[in-house]
Design a protein around this nucleic acid. Structure first.
Lengths: 208, 208, 208, 208
DNA sequence: TATGAATGAGCCTTCATTCAT
DNA sequence: CATGAATGAAGGCTCATTCAT
């Protein structure tokens, strides 16, 4: 955990603003550094590249986010497999306040990671979160007899679900709004999936 | 309907590949043209700018898409207001095969419009479609007593819904898969929203 | 006197407009030809270069102008040397109406030659007219005892004089206005030069 | 008063030569910089644009020139209106040596401003000087009963007058030559205008 | 006669990066 | 620690001209 000097802080602040405004690729290092009141030489004393600068800005938050998501998962993977599904919501709702706190206090960095990272290694961050989580849940669903849903469709829905969470996280909401909206969205997707499964069941019966 | 020469076709093909790979902004005109086996001068004999090249690639498809979406809307706005809501699904499902046909036969262009157009006038294409449709539906919902849902949340869900349609459209699916998946997704979102409204109704009762 | 075809006429007209608006160098051959409704290939069938096009536009007028100026000179060089000076004005005034006619009927071309020709061989046209005329008059002045005026200053004044004639010619004046203004300007310069000579004479006396 | 480095000096010198030879627009930045022995990148470390380079070359001198011209005006506008006209010459002659000094020591820059600035913000510099001065003098003349001269003709003559001053300034003259020539030219124009007015007076009488 | 495809050199500008001091 | 000079490749675009057909 190398100390960040005052110079670095100034540069980081300027960089945040520029990356936010133009995205990673279009932001000009020249202007970032000049706005911070330094020269390019100074910058390269601290960071090896533009990408490393972006990294310095978001790596901690990105890890925090990954962990926060992991906590949700941990909340239900602790149970015996047969009971996991019923604890899914519970775990999510339990972690929600903490997650919202995290979001509110790292919002700018989250925006960077989730919406301004094209051209960096964070480009697919959201997708990997989705992937990671889906990997855990899919086998459960299969076992639980809900497997008649096409896994690809399930993935599609998960992407939409996470995408919506991202939108909530990066919108300008207060902590309470975040909690409420994420709760509502969770209900919608869960309820929606249930509806679909029932419909499919009914359709199958008709076929028989 | 100016004829496109063989040269133009070659350039367009190269451009499609580059735009697809890097997006509009990051794609290099230099390389597009060189890959096509021509010089920049040749290119500017056909197109006035990089943006016009992008436009040549997608403008027809973009109009087709807008019209296809309009057809769906036209399918239910024809009814008296009080009956519109119940015809919503019907209209969508009715148009689905046609829409899927359109998607399959314009897939690459749709990808360009919906996922690679940052920096062009197509940048907000999806958002404007969402906006347009939401504008039509919101008053309906309000009148139907479903207005207890936060309009902002509704918008969030609509964005997710359309985003998912886009993913389906730009994924590598066959026509039948597209129809099936879009149908399923429609069911999920509709069912999910109903679930949320019931939950909210129930919660309200508990409060009283 | 090769015939100019209709095509050439169209191109020439377009060229005149463009050269007038942007000057020779900045005018785009591309646009000249396109505006005329032809292609570059057609153009190069008639003219070997952009400069030759300019030439085609103005060469006749330029010769006419040179001759018109020559006529003025001829008007007084016919007299015996000792009387030439006193016929100078007379000759000029006598030719004025004809000159004004010429100007009015070739105004656009004159503007081209005198104000838009940078980059062509007409660039120094005015200067050469000045030079030519001054060459004739200088010896006269020297002989007439008016030679105490610095020839270089005289040249300066001639440049100003011709420059003013050009401004009158290329301004939007009617024939009568041209005659009147050129007359006035002639009076001013001649009167001014006389004044200077007298002043110099007086100054010399004071020195003695 | 930012210091100009040796590199900048080299570039400025090269730029001066190129601008002088080809004018602002036609001069190639590429060649300016290459001739100076640097790359384009180096150049843009110092100046934000080609125009800014031109500006760096002439801005100081342009201000000096404007002020010098202002000094002349200040020399006679201090008097009560009824006496201003008679002090006009006096003021001009009084400022002449100083003006000539200024010209001699900024000649190259003056040439740039007055004859090579097409395409820059200095393009109309001379015209604005003329305009400015004419604006001051015209009402004076009107009031003094000399108003029977067509204001348009007066403007024509003023343009010629200033144009001649510019030619003197940008010619290769020594300070003393400048003073002498400007003095002579002033006498010529003033004397010439008087002559014209008398002539016009005489003509009028003949008409009556 | 006229087309139109194509060239190739040039334009000004931006940028991330290097490095001696 | 920080500067600031300099690079070199790339960016999109314009232009007069050539030439086969």
């Amino acid at each position: 955990m190398a100390k960040t000097t005052a110079t670095q802080q100034t540069i980081l602040t300027s960089a945040r603003r520029h990356f936010m405004e133009h995205g990673f690729k279009s932001a000009s290092l020249n202007r970032i550094v000049a706005d911070a009141g330094y020269t390019k030489g100074a910058f390269y004393g601290y960071y090896a590249s533009k990408e490393e600068l972006f990294d310095a800005l978001v790596s901690q938050t990105s890890q925090g986010l990954a962990q926060a998501m992991g906590n949700v998962t941990a909340g239900w993977t602790g149970y015996p497999e047969s009971e996991q599904l019923e604890h899914l919501d519970e775990a999510f709702f339990a972690q929600l306040p903490e997650l919202a706190d995290f979001i509110v206090s790292h919002r700018d960095d989250l925006r960077l990671i989730l919406t301004r990272s094209a051209g960096t290694r964070y480009e697919g961050f959201l997708d990997s979160l989705v992937e990671n989580n889906t990997k855990h849940i899919e086998p459960l669903l299969a076992r639980m007899g809900l497997g008649n849903m096409d896994p690809d469709t399930y993935r599609l829905l998960m992407t939409a679900y996470y995408g919506t969470l991202v939108r909530i996280a990066t919108g300008g909401y207060t902590k309470d709004e975040i909690v409420a909206k994420m709760r509502d969205v969770q209900i919608v997707f869960q309820g929606g999936i249930m509806t679909l499964l029932q419909e499919q069941g009914a359709a199958k019966k008709r076929e028989d």
